[in-house]
Structure formats: structure tokens, C-alpha cells
């Protein structure tokens, strides 16, 4: 790792102030992606602003027809939350399948979506569940938030505070893990709710998470695995590497979508 300054503010206001006065800061949440990146010397921030000490960012609250989750809430906590399990079991299951148990004890919701790794799980949930991302500056719709590989709508100095997940009627996430890294090679989140029907795919696309309109339309007509069984994504634009061709990934999107619809019931 290169040298950096480390700050651990206690309040969001302090964090914002620190961000404003730093040359090239990075926000440290759980660190499960950022610290490996720093170790590989792939990033050289001047300051690390650790938001892990801000108590206000660590909460899960069910209110009305949505669950609100603080940005610094750990995956393990989401996975175990009675509120999340009750209202949004697909989200709890997704959180329970991120990384491994030790990673889930550190990694956070805010960190995952702010980083927008193309193989991360939470972006698929946000997109499929029509989530609202509240930041220190504004509210961003999930549809507007994810801008491509490792890119989001977040501006400099903007910190995610919480994410609102409206309750779905039906939802499920199915993931095909990369055999080596165990990240999502293809993850498909399907949902039915006030927003209609959504199908979000992570892991497969070269530009990160995306929705599959054709599947959404087919499921709107007929909510059943058969409805998506014959919908094949074009391989163009999908990742290809030693773990599988773009064609294989396209095929897996169909298989995982089918299985997700079946699991959602």
C-alpha cells in the first residue's frame, strides 16, 4: 500500500468536511474491495475517510411499505435481519450469499453499490427492486445510479446515507458463481412489485448491472419460468474470459432467470 492519511469521523457532517478538504480522498466503508485494491497498489488516495464509525449509517428499519438500510450496514446484518427476512426475503438471501462469512461481517451495502463492481450482487437488487439511494446531497433512483463498470452517479464529496427498498410481492436472486473468485459470473434478480416487473442482471455485462426488458415484458404477460425459458440475450456486450464465453454467459442469464422466477413462486 502507498501511504495515506486516515480519518475516522463520528458524524456525517465531519465526514463531509473531511472529504471537502482532502486532495484525493476515498471513502472507506467495510473495505472488502478497497483494501485489496490498495494492497495491490492499484489506487493511491491521499486520504481514507472511514465512515465505519458513524453510528447513524448503521441501521435497518421497516417503515410503511419499504425497508430502509443504512449505508454502513454490514451484509451479515442484512442477512440476519428479521425485518428484511420478513418483507424482502430475496434481499436477505442475496446478502447471505455475498462473499464469505468473514467478508459479510465487514462489507457494507453502501460500499458495494458505490463501488459498482460489475460482479457485485447488491446492484442487481437495487435495480430490480426499484431502490432509492439517499445521499448527503439528494435522492437517486436505482435506474439512474449505476452508470457502467465501477461508475455511478455519485459526485465528489457525496456520501450514500441509506437505501430504501420497497417491499416486493415476489422476488428472488439466483447466482452462478465464478468457480475461482466466487463472485457472480451471472446473477439474475427478478421481482414483481408496485414498480411492475423487473429483471436485473449482474456479472455478465461488460458495463455492469443491466435490466432485461424482453424478459420483463414476457413475465408481465405470464409470470412463470417458461416465459423466460426461450429468451436468449445476444452475446455481444457480455463478458468473455477463461471461465466462459459470452455465449455461455448469455445462456446462463436465461437459466438463472428461469430459476429465479421459479424460486420467487
Amino acid at each position: 500500500m502507498y501511504q495515506f492519511n486516515y480519518e475516522r469521523p463520528k458524524t456525517l457532517a465531519d465526514a463531509e468536511a473531511l472529504l471537502a478538504k482532502s486532495d484525493d480522498p476515498k471513502i472507506l466503508a467495510g473495505g472488502q474491495t478497497l483494501i485489496p485494491t490498495l494492497k495491490q497498489r492499484l489506487a493511491m488516495p491521499s486520504d481514507l475517510i472511514d465512515i465505519g464509525g458513524i453510528k447513524d449509517l448503521d441501521f435497518i428499519r421497516a417503515e410503511g411499505d419499504a425497508v430502509m438500510i443504512g449505508a454502513a450496514t454490514r451484509h451479515a446484518k442484512v442477512a440476519q435481519s428479521a425485518e428484511v427476512k420478513k418483507h424482502n426475503p430475496a434481499l436477505a438471501a442475496l446478502a447471505a450469499g455475498i462473499g464469505d462469512p468473514a467478508v459479510r461481517h465487514m462489507g457494507t451495502l453502501g460500499g458495494s453499490i458505490a463501488n459498482n463492481d460489475p460482479a457485485a450482487d447488491y446492484p442487481a437488487a437495487c435495480l430490480a427492486l426499484d431502490a432509492k439511494i439517499h445521499t448527503t446531497k439528494r435522492l437517486i433512483e436505482a435506474d439512474e445510479f449505476f452508470k457502467g463498470m465501477f461508475e455511478t452517479a455519485l459526485q465528489d464529496g457525496e456520501i450514500i446515507k441509506e437505501v430504501t427498498f420497497p417491499h416486493p410481492e415476489k422476488a428472488a436472486y439466483m447466482k452462478f458463481r465464478n468457480p475461482a473468485s466466487r463472485y457472480a459470473m451471472v446473477g439474475v434478480f427478478v421481482s414483481k412489485g408496485p414498480w411492475g416487473i423487473r429483471v436485473a442482471v449482474t456479472g455478465a455485462g461488460q458495463n455492469g448491472v443491466f435490466r432485461v426488458k424482453e424478459m420483463e415484458e414476457a413475465l408481465a404477460k405470464n409470470w412463470s419460468p417458461d416465459a423466460v425459458a426461450n429468451i436468449k440475450l445476444p452475446a455481444k456486450g457480455l463478458n468473455a474470459d477463461l471461465h466462459g464465453s459470452a455465449e455461455y454467459r448469455a445462456h446462463l442469464v436465461t437459466v438463472m432467470a428461469k430459476r429465479a422466477v421459479a424460486a420467487a413462486g
Binding site: 483494501i35 485489496p36 465487514m106
Partner: peptide, 8 residues
């Protein structure tokens, strides 16, 4: 349980 190589 936490990975101490991935925590400052």
C-alpha cells in the same frame, strides 16, 4: 470472524 489482511 474477520479477515485481518483486509482490515486496517
Amino acid at each position: 470472524a474477520v479477515k485481518s489482511c483486509t482490515m486496517l
